[in-house]
Design a protein around this nucleic acid. Structure first.
Length: 868
RNA sequence: GCCCCUGUGGCGGAAUUGGUAGACGCGACAGAUUCAAAAUCUGUUGUCUUAGGGCGUGCUGGUUCGAGUCCGGCCAGGGGCACCA
């Protein structure tokens, strides 16, 4: 027998698939469609094991669905804009475009080695003007429908690099590259009006039945809807520069108003701002708060500090009661109105604050097990359910009723001609800022004219492309300092004007790429026929790290594209699957330096350096990362074992949503299977009938046995793949392998025609079943069984129901819930019959002994439990 | 602090949703083959045992004829959010 040589064989099948174009997809309204999509990669230069896992899983689904008769769309592209290209440009003095396209070429060829069933003719790169011209059109469409707003916002500004930093690039208040103290700068920026859909984005989460709950919960909390009351406290005493007559406060607990003992505003509140100008101590205090916000977050989190402003407000319900207004470090300007009233008894933060400044603590909610006279709050606020006390007209009500009554009452009271309070809904979600002061992104198609203001670039002048002659040797945005690029004439009045030099956040690029894949070459933004046919994505697969932003932005884009008439539906992804990470042991030498796995030799649980023999410490298992060097290069695995081994390993043993640990033993086992399967087909083929032979009338018991196993396993694997349980599918493949091995190693000499037929049936099903997971091997096996067509074009095997139902079943006999024996009996046997047989089992007789039988429970086909 | 997930042999993990716990794989041990090794194949492999069984799914209590699965309380590990009024 020839050893199966994956490295030699795999390219041959890959070439055949391409030649026959079997992964090309076209709209075909006669067939049900199935759109499989994996999150497209950032072209960093090399694929990593995370990619292998992601794309292998998608490929299994794509191949399985294709075999199951679906018209499958399975495209691939590149999330090609973004900062790493600019960083590379700075470090290596190359152009971002050159670096990016080189990386794309590398990664494309690496991905192709994996034998993925991708329609490469649909490939897109977001940095391609042919792609982003449509993004610019979409932006202008959104602008017309008021989905885009322009407003001021604070950004992290690195004064050395002269650039805006993302939050994650600010480390302890310093720029990650320059180390400069990051400043807060106010810039006018473009925003997508995502808050417009806040309610709908929240509500429709319920309809996403095939999304992980985890992701839905995260989005729910991110949107952060809360219902409450916006209260206008009348300001009683104030300093001269304060012009406000009321202090606006948001609360979800209007029921606790009678327990209010102070008000507090955020250090960033406009009133605090005014005060800081007239009072140096307040200014100092605010500065301390702001420092704590970034650097000392962990230390400061416990301590609640405040500053008494001297301003007081009137209590809305209690005449002549005034509350002091503090500036407090724990009040956030970004949430609600940036001001609160404090009810220490029923909010821990407020209680901590009140205890520090000796403010009164009035309990207004009484837990059911407490007495109102003795009930006191000392160090722990009570946030549970109860009845109202010390609350005048709210007394004895439940919290819910008190909330309603308090809110209704506030709406009726008028101060300064307006209601004192109104029911309000607030969201944590804020509008999506999309302006980035960077070069390597999609230009925002806007021109700023001194006379006409903000002017759209006319559609026929799109795309606004990036200038190529830029340098990265000086800090700052190359678009801004380019000698000619930004200077244009106003499309409206023709006078000198300037281009917008900001580019889009790269999340914009990835918020609609899945739609563009439906018609990647269309002159329109989206071809409605294609989009209506293919969308939504039936199965989207990617890392959970995109649970919020990318997925929420995409959901926003679909809604917006619906308003602009590009699509007809709201939700982009019908099914979502978030796969786990790939992990590996870590290795360090005694100096504490990380080592690559290939530098380490492990014997009997002790590790030594492969060259020097020095002692190596085996560290914890962590997700593969360059910094810890615990990485395995997919290329190395593919060139050593072939793609099928890598694919097989990544699918085996570990459930796909969990982290998978990469081990050498695991890879060996995967490779062993590849060889074993080939051997089964190679040896088994000697005994099978001709492929055109018809089904025999009768089967021997032996033949029947293998047929039954085969059909059972077809049904199991079908179910496993329907539920993305790849590890279980692999286990069932092994089971069939074992059954087939037994037959083949027995080398049946007088094989009869029914066995020859059953064996062919089984071997062909076998190939088809592992086909989606090890596609190259499957083609070789299919070919060896005498077929000249491609397995990738064969239909998924079906099972006969009657072959997976047994005529007899094994009934477990229990005494008091403990297994005491088993009997085999016809599937439709009556309970009486089962009992009779069971009571003749030696073990059962012994166990019952002299005890009297109290009760007998019979679960048909499964269990007979005798209670004695 | 809050929320979510996970906890089953030496290891990765199965268990049709309340019905034989440990499928399948790895590792280990034994045997076959071999001059020998690798590879391959065949067994054995939760644990204690007086060989009848006993005990076993993080701990603990409960519901049930019957619990890995359901409910209450805890413990541990991982992830997410974090002063959200």
């Amino acid at each position: 027998m020839e050893r199966y040589n994956a490295q030699e064989v795999e390219p041959i099948w890959q070439k055949k698939w391409v030649e026959k174009g079997i992964f090309k997809s076209e709209e075909n309204t006669n067939k049900s469609k199935y759109y499989v999509l994996e999150m497209f990669p950032y072209p960093s230069g090399k694929i990593h094991m995370g990619h292998v896992r992601n794309y292998t899983m998608g490929d299994v689904i794509a191949r399985y669905k294709r075999a199951s008769g679906f018209n499958v769309l399975h495209p691939m592209g590149w999330d090609a804009f973004g900062m790493p290209a600019e960083n590379a440009a700075m470090q290596r003095n190359t152009h971002p475009a050159i670096w990016t396209y080189e990386n794309i070429n590398n990664m494309r060829s690496q991905l192709k080695l994996l034998g993925l069933s991708i329609d490469w003719e649909r490939e897109i790169a977001t940095c391609d003007p042919k792609y982003y011209v449509h993004e610019q059109k979409l932006f202008l469409d959104f602008l017309k429908k008021d989905l885009v707003v322009r407003k001021n916002s604070k950004v992290n500004w690195d004064p050395v690099d002269k650039t805006v930093l993302a939050n994650e690039q600010v480390i302890d208040g310093l720029g990650w590259r320059s180390g400069a103290l990051v400043e807060t700068k106010e810039l006018t920026q473009w925003f997508f009006n995502i808050t417009k859909f806040a309610d709908d984005l929240l509500l429709k989460l319920d309809d996403l039945k095939r999304w992980p709950d985890k992701v839905k919960i995260m989005q729910d909390r991110w949107i952060g809807k809360s219902t409450g009351v916006k209260l206008h406290f009348e300001i009683k005493h104030k300093t001269q520069n304060i012009i406000d007559k009321t202090l606006e406060v948001f609360t979800t607990r209007p029921d606790t108003l009678f327990g209010a003992s102070f008000c507090a505003i955020s250090p960033d509140h406009p009133i605090a701002n005014v005060l800081s100008k007239e009072n140096l101590e307040i200014k100092k205090f605010i500065n301390t708060c702001q420092k704590q916000g970034t650097t000392l977050a962990n230390i400061a989190k416990a301590e609640k500090i405040g500053f008494k402003t001297g301003i007081t407000v009137n209590h809305p319900f209690i005449k002549n009661k005034e509350l002091d207004v503090y500036i407090a470090n724990f009040v956030l300007m970004e949430y609600g109105t940036g001001a609160i009233f404090g009810c220490p008894a029923h909010d821990q933060r407020d209680l901590d604050f009140a205890n520090k400044y000796q403010l009164e603590v009035i309990p207004v909610v009484l837990p059911s097990n407490q007495d109102s006279k003795s009930y006191k709050i000392i160090n722990e606020a009570f946030t549970g359910d109860g009845t109202m006390i010390n609350s005048d007209f709210l007394n004895n009500l439940s919290i819910a009723d008190a909330k309603n009554l308090a809110a209704d009452t506030l709406e009726k009271i008028k101060i300064n001609g307006q209601a004192q309070g109104e029911k309000t809904i607030t969201f944590r979600l804020r509008d999506w800022g999309i302006s980035r002061q960077r070069y390597w992104g999609c230009p925002i198609p806007i021109i700023h004219c001194k006379k006409c203001g903000v002017v759209e670039v006319p559609r026929n002048k799109l795309p606004v492309t990036l200038p190529e002659d830029v340098s990265f040797d000086v800090p700052g945005n190359p678009l801004d300092r380019h000698p000619t690029w930004k200077h244009v004439s106003c499309p409206k009045c023709n006078s000198p004007a300037e281009r917008e030099t900001d580019t889009f956040d790269t999340f914009v690029d990835s918020s609609w790429y899945y739609a563009r894949f439906c018609s990647p070459h269309s002159e329109e933004v989206l071809d409605s026929k294609a989009v209506d046919y293919w969308l939504p994505v039936d199965q989207y697969i990617g890392g959970v790290e995109h649970a919020i932003l990318h997925l929420l932005y995409s959901r926003f884009f679909m809604r917006s594209m619906k308003i602009t008439g590009h699509v007809k539906i709201d939700e982009p992804f019908d099914g979502l699957f978030t796969q786990g990470m790939v992990t590996h042991e870590t290795y360090k030498n005694t100096k504490g330096e990380w080592l690559f796995p290939e530098e380490v030799k492990i014997e009997n649980n002790t590790a030594t350096h492969i060259d020097t023999g020095e002692e190596i410490i085996i560290g914890p298992i962590e997700s593969m990362s360059k910094s810890k060097k615990n990485i395995i290069d997919p290329n190395a695995i593919v060139s050593m074992y072939g793609a099928d081994t890598a694919r097989w390993f990544i699918l085996s043993d570990t459930p796909p949503e969990r982290d998978i640990q990469w081990t050498d033993n695991g890879v060996e086992a995967a490779n062993k299977f590849i060889q074993k399967a080939w051997k089964i087909i190679y040896e088994g083929e000697k005994y099978v009938c001709k492929k055109e032979e018809g089904i025999p009338l009768n089967f021997t018991d032996e033949a029947m046995k293998i047929r039954k196993v085969t059909h059972k396993i077809i049904s199991e694997i079908t179910e496993a793949l329907d539920n993305l349980r790849f590890n279980r599918a692999v286990a069932y493949i092994y089971e069939l392998s074992n059954s087939l091995t037994t037959i083949i190693t027995d080398k049946p000499k007088n094989i009869d025609t029914s066995m020859a037929w059953a064996l062919r049936e089984s071997l062909e099903a076998y190939c088809k079943l592992f086909g989606p997971m090890a596609p190259h091997l499957a083609e070789s096996c299919w070919n060896h069984l005498g077929h000249t067509n491609l397995l990738a074009e064969q239909p998924w095997p079906t099972y006969e129901k009657k072959l997976i139902i047994n005529e007899t079943s094994v009934i477990i006999v229990q005494i008091n819930g403990k297994k005491r024996g088993e009997i085999e009996i016809s599937i439709d046997a009556e309970q009486k019959e089962v009992e009779q047989k069971a009571f003749n089992v030696e073990n059962v007789i012994r166990a019952i002994n002299d005890n009297t039988i109290k009760k007998v429970i019979y679960v048909p086909g499964k269990i007979l439990n005798v209670v004695v």
